[in-house]
């Protein structure tokens, strides 16, 4: 009888919750991986800026192509991210403005332009709006044709998986490979730019590649989970991981663990949590995942073994 119960719950679980959870995990890890390096390079807010400019990029791609297919939108968003990074550089140099202000100026302006374009052009027929851009639609990425766990081996059912899942999986593999292949270079140039240049590492190209990887992660994750998770996952899991260890490899490992926990717990609390309080409605999974990552960060701030700066240990 218990077996029957498990299969019955399993079927529904696979159909409704498995794909959103997996997509959430993939998105969280894809953002957390480059986030580790951005954090150590004090560029944590690049992720914030990029996820804001994804919206105008998508709107621009829609205006140019007139369709709402994935490839032009991802290209548009990627292009917008690169344009934004270029604008930030120009304003920084020309105005001799501090990076934070240049960044804030660029991403608010581009975001405002995106919202305005969205409002004045007739995009009501297609499914892009500001809400969606912020929140994503993780809950709706269900797997209609799944009959149960057995569907994972059924090629027909597998072909009806939400397209975001394979896309994010490819992006995650790509980012993982980038970090793995350039591990030594990334590590050295993150901690000591001058030394990296002295031993012949092309640090400028490498930082640009890191920004591109960040943009790709942001764009791919954005489509599925919205920009809140994207910003939260760029910053929170790596920041928590930073308080756990002094070694880059372990830090990356911890950030993957924290990202995964946030994605799973966030989705479960959002979907099932309100039921525990007797409410029939679910709350925003994207918001909940971000909130859980914040709780993890607070816990590591309070108890992380390496939370203090060096030399600050004695102070209470």
């Amino acid at each position: 009888m218990i077996d029957d119960l498990i299969t019955a719950m399993g079927a529904e679980f696979v159909q409704l919750s498995l794909t959103p959870i997996v997509i959430g995990i993939l998105a969280a890890i894809a953002c957390a991986l480059p986030g580790n390096f951005l954090l150590l390079r004090r560029q944590a807010l690049i992720g914030d800026a990029i996820s804001h400019v994804v919206l105008p990029g998508i709107v621009a791609a829609f205006l140019i192509t007139g369709t709402i297919s994935a490839v032009p939108m991802m290209l548009g968003a990627g292009a917008a991210a690169i344009v934004a990074v270029g604008m930030i550089e120009i304003i920084k140099r020309l105005g001799r403005v501090e990076p934070g202000a240049a960044m804030g100026l660029v991403f608010t302006t581009l975001f405002a332009a995106g919202v305005l374009f969205l409002e004045i052009t007739d995009t009501s027929s297609v499914h892009i709006d500001v809400q969606h851009a912020l929140l994503g639609n993780l809950e709706s990425l269900i797997w209609f044709d799944a009959q149960g766990w057995g569907s994972l081996l059924d090629p027909v059912a597998l072909s009806t998986l939400p397209p975001q899942l394979p896309r994010l999986a490819i992006v995650l593999v790509g980012i993982g490979l980038f970090i793995l292949l350039f591990w030594k270079e990334l590590k050295i140039s993150t901690f000591d730019v001058s030394f990296a240049e002295a031993i012949g590492i092309r640090t400028k190209i490498l930082s640009f590649a890191l920004v591109v990887a960040t943009a790709i992660a942001a764009v791919a994750a954005f489509d599925a989970v919205g920009s809140i998770i994207v910003i939260a996952m760029f910053v929170c899991p790596p920041a928590s991981a930073r308080l756990m260890t002094n070694q880059l490899g372990r830090q990356v490992g911890w950030s993957v663990v924290f990202a995964t926990i946030s994605a799973i717990l966030g989705y479960v609390f959002a979907g099932y949590g309100p039921g525990w309080f007797g409410s029939p409605y679910a709350v925003s999974a994207a918001g909940m995942i971000a909130s859980i990552s914040g709780v993890i960060l607070i816990l590591t701030c309070l108890f992380g073994p390496q939370r203090k700066r060096t030399g600050q240990q004695a102070e209470a």
Binding site: R42, D48, I228, I231, A232, P238, G287, A290, G294
Partner: peptide
């Protein structure tokens, strides 16, 4: 900057909840 990014995204996410 990390603190800013964390507070911004977590508070906003909680607000959306």
């Amino acid at each position: 900057d990390a603190a800013i990014g964390a507070v911004l995204s977590v508070f906003f996410g909680f607000g959306i909840v």
